[in-house]
Design a protein around this nucleic acid. Structure first.
Lengths: 172, 172
DNA sequence: ATCAGATGTTTTACTAATAAAACATCTGGT
DNA sequence: ACCAGATGTTTTATTAGTAAAACATCTGAT
């Protein structure tokens, strides 16, 4: 691995925590019409103090706006970030659940872990891929049917390269 | 998003940093036959002091062993973790580069960000998927050919649901 | 043998994200 | 008007990972 690649992780503009603070505001506005510090804290199951500090930083960065009544909302840049995160989350979730046939819960957890880390380009290509794969196109349908039937038959008869697989099993 | 899902992120046993400290030892042993604190620090481009502290913690956790000459190596649990991480990294990298046609650099970066976050099950299913997709099976070959030709033709004529796509474009 | 350079550790400090507790403020019911 | 409960902030502390600097040790060339 080239030395500079791994440090890209930390250089990510949006952390997991920030992604979820922003998403929480988005969802609260949607479901309850407003979002205060306490609402965000409740939604994320963290203390009000913690939410207060993180949201203060987001206000200073201009991603979150605050009312005269302490009501929070997303700025335009904030909305753009949330949209891109939610779009990636939805695409990854759909791929994991509808293509790879993972359970909804696992698909949700993994999509949530990964959503804020993927590049724009990766999100776009995955979107194209999933859209075609789940389309009405006969080639796509045929492929998926074949893949799933092989999945059901079990690896033993179908995956010649399954010798790699045991490496995955060990934890993490 | 159900409230407890997003906290799974922090509850991950292996952090990005730890994943790369362990991988570095693995790769150094492979390429140079030994790995010391300084070698790991150089490989990761962090200070010796930082590597020393992180590796001390990994020794205490029993993932890294130390020689009488300060030579480091991976314990059996350490090796198992590295194997599962490297396997996931390779699978994701292959999917991004060979299927989604991302550049090698981007594939490497995204795979590196994500490798330590995916569940065992997700890794396994993705492995099966990529193995079948890149196999000699006619259905798979036909599907990939069709997908790539559509990619080249450009989205405009092929992706009816492309109205979602603009959401991705906004940063992150 | 000595001295330079490499190596390893420790200490201090920083950042992000958290909890916990103290505190301040605001609001609603009586 | 008052008091309880909810809300928001601040302070103190913790954890992981880092840098920087001081320090100790080891090694190798002369």
């Amino acid at each position: 691995m080239s030395s500079d690649v791994w440090k890209e992780y930390e250089s990510n503009e949006i952390s997991h925590s920030v992604a979820h603070h922003l998403s929480a505001i988005h969802e609260l506005m949607d479901s309850h019409g407003y979002a205060r510090v306490s609402d965000v804290a409740r939604a994320l199951e963290i203390t009000r103090g913690s939410a207060s500090l993180t949201l203060k930083a987001l206000k200073e960065k201009g991603l979150v706006l605050e009312d005269h009544n302490k009501f929070l909302s997303l700025s335009e840049p904030g909305k753009r970030i949330v949209n891109s995160i939610l779009a990636k989350r939805a695409i990854v979730r759909k791929f994991l659940a509808d293509v790879l046939q993972l359970g909804d819960r696992q698909a949700e957890i993994d999509a949530c872990k990964v959503e804020h880390l993927l590049s724009v380009k990766t999100g776009q290509q995955l979107l194209h891929f999933v859209q075609f794969l789940l389309s009405e196109d006969v080639v796509a349908k045929q492929f998926l049917t074949e893949f799933w039937s092989r999945l059901e038959m079990g690896e033993a008869h179908c995956w010649p390269g399954a010798n790699v697989e045991h490496l995955l099993k060990s934890e993490t």
